[in-house]
């Protein structure tokens, strides 16, 4: 018993597509999460963009631990620097310039609020999945980092 593939390119692509869409459809949970992403919009907040990601800089001879990663976000005069430790399960961060206040860390579908010390430092737990931080920036204002996948 052997199987055949179509000789025609268009038919072959259709064939493979048929197999893969039956065998690898978009999971319902993924569609639900995509729909739910709308609710995470922060129309009141300014965006801090990812300015540095050590993942994209490493040349293979890095001296840091394999699971460590440094990220820098910048926006609206604020720089947020973070170090991900233990493969991303823990993070230490700093706001530059330092400012006291609350930082919301959203990771793995959960939100945790931590407070910064006088030097603008904070620590938090993280987790796999989409990640971002929200920083208070005075009454009615906030800065959010863009989402990245941890």
């Amino acid at each position: 018993m052997t199987f055949d593939l179509p000789d025609d390119d268009d038919l072959l692509l259709d064939d493979v597509c048929d197999v893969l869409s039956r065998c690898d459809p978009v999971p319902h949970a993924v569609l639900a999460a995509a729909t739910g992403a709308f609710a995470w919009r922060r129309v009141d907040a300014d965006l801090a963009e990812l300015a540095f990601d050590s993942l994209l800089e490493l040349t293979g001879s890095g001296t840091r631990g394999a699971g460590d990663r440094q990220l820098t976000f910048e926006g609206n005069g604020l720089t947020i620097e973070i170090d991900m430790l233990d493969g991303g399960s823990q993070l230490i961060g700093q706001l530059v310039p330092p400012q006291p206040g609350a930082v919301q860390v959203q990771a793995g579908g959960r939100t945790a609020t931590v407070t910064t010390d006088a030097g603008g430092h904070f620590t938090a737990a993280a987790g796999a999945g989409p990640f971002r931080m929200c920083v208070d920036a005075g009454p009615g204002a906030a800065i959010v980092t863009e989402w990245i996948t941890l």
């Binding site: 978009v26 999971p27 993924v30 999460a33 992403a37 709308f38 989409p130 971002r132 989402w147």
Partner: peptide
């Protein structure tokens, strides 16, 4: 599946914040 799900969700979250 787990990584692809995260990537898809991140993409939609990014779009949500960049809609305007």
């Amino acid at each position: 599946t787990a990584d692809a799900s995260d990537v898809v969700q991140t993409s939609w979250l990014r779009l949500a914040e960049n809609l305007t």
